[in-house]
Nucleic acid binder design. Structure first.
Lengths: 198, 198, 198, 198
DNA sequence: TATGAATGAGGGTTCATTCAT
DNA sequence: CATGAATGAACCCTCATTCAT
């Protein structure tokens, strides 16, 4: 790779990191392009060489951060010897919850954006995009020996239930803090899975 | 009531309606105070007689619209002869889903705002605020002859599951349209309730 | 006086007092008509029944406050048995300085407005305006047995020297506090008077 | 210097000149940023690249204009062979009065702002700020062979007497025009100096 | 590629003034 | 006389975007 190419990558990287930092600390609406380029130490015009506008960089950040989370969770799963479907799914949920608990600003940022829309998009584009490991997760359900009425809907409900409840529980401890909530949630997930089994 | 008071109420009403219309069609960020007052046919300064800023009117709209939805659902429930807990909860969910299906812009607006934060707040303040009927819903669980490990957490999970999945299903038919999704959802709710029963 | 007339006078009085309070605490520029009427407890429109605008009420306040100061000083002078011209003038200066030291906000308000312009205006209109006692002060010079090249210019220089230096000394203790400054000032005044004697 | 830097300097200069023109003709309160940028032929946002707000540009103008006046007077003094203290001070006063008489709008602008506060500030910062020549004036008193009770207070009284009386005399010919007033003023200054001599 | 000065539309907000009650 | 809701022009300021360098 040429020296200029390395430089380019660094600039882009700096903008992404700075934008994430600012988005999570002061919110997207209150973050200006000025803030981003100042903190990143590049000129204003440079921003527009890499991103269309503020929402472009936000979307790229969400996709990037979300896929990293799944990637990490999936890598951890493969280290375990878990074979049981329910155990595997709950391990993933627990791992992802753990990541969000560690980094609450990340949760606030992708918050409810990590819903089915993005999930599905990434799942579809996973073949072309080496970043993403959603597909592995999807395969867990499909390749399980157990049969489900509709694996996609089951996955959908689990993802939505987990992301939606954890948002409230981790960030605001409502209706209870995440550690107290986990047993209820994991019970519910197991029950959900069984309810959809044929 | 004096004539001027009626006039005031009308102005406020006009601003609320117009703001809702604009928020739901072009989003809050892209809606300006100018847009609102122009469409409402009042002077710019008049806006500030009734609301502090754009976010003040938004919050008042969310609370108002959300409480109406529960109110309608609760009224419909009392018309039925349903006694079984699961049936009553599913009736409420179905009714609310119906309202959102009828008025998708409303769903987009209060969207994921209708989550536990507001739900809980309203529930707490319901005694002083005649607008709100959340409390009735909460009582359904508490006064049921069946006993649950933690009624609040159970309600929390149901509300989050319903609001989160329906958002995607109604607005984007993802992963499937709402009518096809309902049976899965209602099954899941019944299972959730049972899983939390002592 | 009729009851309504008393009420009118009270409203006007309330507006004047409130305006003075606000002008001296937050400055004229930052004081709004709204502030004034709110604090005075009258309706907005009422302000315009008594004053043309913010600057009208300010001018009326300056004239009123300034004439009171001279009036007080002159009354105090007549209580003394002082006959010597220099003593009488310095007594007046001292008394006025004392009043300003007691009420610094008053000094800040009429501040450098208490200059020759207003002084002269009031002096001229003193015959028709029972409020004002400038004329008495002027007479001190004219009716003194000593003769001066130009009594008006002498008075002018004294007034300007006193008002200008005391502003700085009382409010900011620059270049020194008022008590330390007084001896220098009074010396200077005596010298000034002598220098203008024929 | 780069071309863009020259351009920047020109823009700043244009804004300062335009602002001064407008401040002196219509007053600061009635001058808007819009007025300034329109007259200067730059965009509104450009103003904020160079100045924080209206009061920032005003302060910069006062300091700049005031220091120029002293600078000019001091330069003229050094051209004369005057050695006598009183002569030197009166030369300075006369020169400054001359400048204000030539440019009455300038007097109206810095008007009574040219009082001890700014005078002292500038005097203190004169060592670091090559713009200002107040210090030279101060040295005149300190390095004179004659001794004074308190040179600073003496200077203070002279500055206040001159600035305060000339304001009225030059701008309003009150109580008389400046030419007629000068002899009285200069007499008074000489007497003031002598009165403070030990 | 990278810069950053310049732009100017349009944002939110204020507030003196009016006028129907 | 007194009110205060309504007005809307004008304010200050921001900031995404452009473009000459």
């Amino acid at each position: 790779m040429k020296k200029t190419d390395i430089n380019k990558k660094q600039k882009r990287e700096a903008l992404l990191n700075t934008a994430f930092e600012l988005f999570t600390t002061q919110g997207i609406n209150k973050t200006t392009i000025n803030n981003i380029v100042d903190a990143a130490g590049v000129a204003k015009g440079t921003f527009y060489l890499y991103f269309k506008d503020k929402y472009d960089i936000r979307n790229k950040l969400i996709a990037h951060k979300a896929s990293r989370i799944f990637s990490v969770a999936d890598a951890a799963l493969s280290q375990t010897g878990l074979t049981e479907l329910e155990d595997r799914i709950i391990f993933l949920a627990d791992n992802i919850i753990g990541q969000f608990t560690e980094d609450k600003s990340l949760l606030g940022f992708i918050s409810k954006n990590l819903s089915w829309g993005i999930f599905k998009n990434e799942l579809i584009s996973s073949s072309e995009n080496s970043d993403v490991d959603f597909y592995n997760i999807y395969k867990i359900l499909e390749h399980s020996p157990r049969a489900f009425k509709n694996p996609e809907i089951l996955l959908f409900m689990i993802v939505e239930l987990v992301s939606s409840t954890c948002y409230s529980s981790i960030l605001y401890s409502e209706p209870t803090d995440i550690e107290a909530f986990k047993p209820y949630l994991f019970d519910a997930i197991r029950e959900l899975i069984r309810s959809q089994e044929i």
